[in-house]
Design a protein around this nucleic acid. Sequence first.
DNA 1: CGCCTTTGACCCGCGC
DNA 2: GCGCGGGTCAAAGGCG
Length: 199
Amino acid sequence: MENYQLLFPCSSTIAESSSSPSFSSHNNMGTPFINGNSSLHGVGNEMNEFHVRTTPSDDIHRAVSHDRHHHHHLGIANSGDGPAEMMSEQAAKPSEKKKGEKKIRKPRFAFQTRSQVDILDDGYRWRKYGQKAVKNNKFPRSYYRCTHQGCNVKKQVQRLSKDEGTVVTTYEGVHSHPIDKPSDNFEHILNQMHIYTPF
DNA sequence: CGCCTTTGACCCGCGC
DNA sequence: GCGCGGGTCAAAGGCG
């Protein structure tokens, strides 16, 4: 399914600044929306912010329902009236530090989706590694890591308490490997097509 | 049995 | 220093 990129229609744009180079260089499937203004500031700048603008029709995702809070079932994320949203945030956290390593924050980008379900299935396999309560939010935030060997991409998902129909997904890092969906069967594909051709 | 969640503890940066 | 908030670890358990 190399057309995973369709998940993010061309209309959605991203502005991100980061300290991570090696961005626009090789294309990485699965992150089509990185338009390569890489390394705005050199390493050492811990401040980066990300904006995501999506269009009204951005609730374009396959989604996993969580009728049980574990396994993945298929379901179409809503189709809603999600208005265009813009997000910007600061992340001034040095996360990547092993031992005397520099504190570089990978670029992060977020988008929000109106959806009934929390987990948007973007085609990668994720393992949840944490969940935390968020201040001023009645919903927790979940932390996921890409399970692909050597892939360090993370994402976090949270639902707005202000508008509980909205789910914010924040990606951190870039996949450098193909999509690793165990079973991409017809049903999945059909679901996608369904979503991508709303007219 | 392998893969995944759950969940409390831990860690770290920051403001007071 | 201390507490808080956000992010991560890892043990334990669940499920197919």
